[in-house]
Nucleic acid binder design. Structure first.
Length: 491
RNA sequence: GUCUCCCUCGUCUAGUGGUUAGGACAACGGGUUUUCAUCCCGUCAACGCGGGUUCGAUCCCCGCGGGAGAUGCCA
């Protein structure tokens, strides 16, 4: 049988790490097994829905290079793939269960439900959830409520006896007593939209989904879903619950741990291949040694056997490391086009780029490449080229082991050596040797000479390599800044 | 509260009834280097606890402890 899996997010927020990890696992599993990857939009929560979320879903998957075989936009044989467009379907199935006696109309108000909940909490009762107030209404009572114009919900009648087991490929058998299943969950809301439980089961069946891979937070409702399949008389698909992605404190990863939206990572300058690589390594491994995976490799080698049971903490630092690795592997031309937007946004270059800008960016790439963890790092790294903020505190120019007087003298002499050397077109190595000689003349370390020059030219003790900085800045500007620094020491 | 699940270095993980328990990130130290970074080398660091089973348990069983998730007209 052909493998058919789906990613079924609800567009109520930006795509986050956890969600996208689920998407990736499903996608790779489908590819590795020659199956189909289906995208389904579960937009049944009309209050939290937003167009922005839907756009973010598409753009995030697109950015990661994840293409779906069936789903919105591309269509497919079991569409539509957006649940709000399948509205009528769910009502039909919910009513079918009512007719079978497996579900019933409920007219309780949200206020009453809230009171029941409060009372249960106050009494510390073991029993939690709906009190089945409407479970046995007579036909005439139902008619009367309807006549009053009260919009009912449809609730599933959970058996109070027995137990339900489902098999999870990763976890093994999971069993719950039926009386422990949250009593009589709502299938169809009063606005006519289905809840997750109904829509999910109906669509997975209708779309011939073979494997349900979703986060472990769904394990507790697994038995409920099995009960629903059985009530409909449908085959239960295979389950595979994915370990959760946690924050540093061991709680479910959320905004308070840092960025979780893929879009934020993208904006900061993470490469899609780094995100894709690291995220699939959260809760999955091939052999414990291989760490670098391209999308294409994962499309071949991904297996369910490599998925873990236990939750995994999302390590931002390891992601940074991966990203740095991918940046260093990056082709220079591509890197140039990747960093350009950050320079544009900083106002360092014009937008759109001029030919001069493009040429400059191409020259910026090599020295900056070894120094970036994220693409946005290019801004602080190169700001000295575009924003001249001279350092006026003399002590900053003074290297360890030197002093202000020596620094001033060294700066003056070094500038002369440097400028004349550059103007004569001397080899950089030669100039470097001469500067080193100057240092021993002053009986200071080499850096005692380089630091004041560096600070003069780059306005910082930390910078790109000196000669790279000079080449990027240009000789005139370099000379200007050196003179300015010298005069600072002459005051 | 109740139910369900989970438990190897700080983190992600490999692994086996007998291993010096392996790798990666982080941290720390060193080397290369004009700073920073890259790169290279090294150090620190784990089988939650208690019982069993066994000649022998990190691994199998039981209990405990700890953690997480679920308990919504959210998914």
């Amino acid at each position: 049988m052909e493998v058919r899996v789906r990613y079924a997010p609800s567009p109520t927020g930006l795509q986050h790490i956890g969600g996208i990890r689920t998407a990736l696992f499903n996608y790779f599993f489908a590819r590795a097994n020659g199956g189909k990857f289906i995208l389904r939009v579960e937009d049944t929560d009309r209050e939290r829905y937003s167009d922005e979320s839907l756009e973010d879903l598409y753009s995030t998957l697109d950015w990661l290079g994840i293409k779906w075989d069936e789903g919105p936009v591309v269509g497919g044989p079991y569409g539509p793939y957006i649940q709000s467009e399948r509205f009528d379907l769910y009502k039909k199935y919910a009513e079918e269960l009512v007719e079978k006696g497996r579900a019933y109309y409920c007219f309780c108000t949200p206020e009453r439900l809230e009171e029941v909940r409060k009372a249960q909490a106050a009494s510390k009762s073991e029993y939690q959830g709906y009190d089945r107030h409407c479970a046995h209404l007579s036909d005439s009572e139902i008619k009367e409520y309807l006549r009053q114009g009260i919009k009912p919900v449809i609730r599933f009648r959970v058996p109070t006896e027995g137990k339900t087991t489902f098999h999870d490929i990763i976890m093994g058998d999971i069993t719950r007593r039926n009386r422990d299943i949250s009593p009589d969950p709502i299938l169809l809301k009063s606005d006519g939209f289905p809840t997750y439980h109904l829509a999910n089961v109906v669509d997975d069946h209708l779309m011939h989904i073979t494997h349900i891979m979703r986060a472990q937070e769904w394990i507790p409702s697994g038995p409920l879903h099995v009960l629903l399949y059985e009530a409909f008389g449908w085959d239960v698909p295979q389950y595979c619950h994915l370990p959760m992605v946690m924050g540093k404190d061991g709680q479910k990863l959320s905004k308070r741990h840092g960025s979780t939206a893929v879009r934020d990572f993208r904006q900061k300058g993470y490469l899609p291949e780094a995100i894709l690589n690291y995220v699939t390594l959260v809760g999955w491994s091939l052999d414990g040694n291989t760490e670098f995976f391209s999308k294409e490799q994962l499309e071949k080698c991904f297996t369910m056997e490599g998925i873990h049971k236990s939750p995994a903490v999302f390590d931002y630092k390891k992601l940074d490391w991966f990203n740095g690795q991918y940046i260093r592997q990056c082709d220079n031309d591509r890197l140039a086009s990747l960093i350009a937007p950050y320079l544009e946004e900083a106002g360092f270059v014009s937008s759109p780029l001029t030919d001069n800008d493009k040429a400059l960016i191409a020259r910026i790439v090599p020295p900056v490449k070894e120094r970036m963890k994220v693409l946005s790092d290019v801004v602080p790294l190169t700001s000295f080229l575009f924003r001249d903020v001279p350092v006026v505190d003399k002590s900053v120019y003074v290297a360890k082991g030197s002093d202000e007087e020596k620094t001033g003298e060294a700066l003056k002499k070094a500038s002369a050596i440097l400028l004349s050397g550059l103007k004569e077109g001397k080899d950089e190595e030669v100039i470097e040797t001469e500067l080193a000689a100057l240092a021993s003349e002053f009986e200071i370390k080499v850096n005692g000479v380089f630091q004041p020059i560096r600070v003069a030219i780059t306005n910082s003790t930390v910078s790109l390599p000196l000669f790279d900085s000079i080449r990027l800045l240009g000789l005139d500007e370099t000379e200007k800044r050196l003179k300015r620094a010298i005069s600072l020491f002459e005051e």
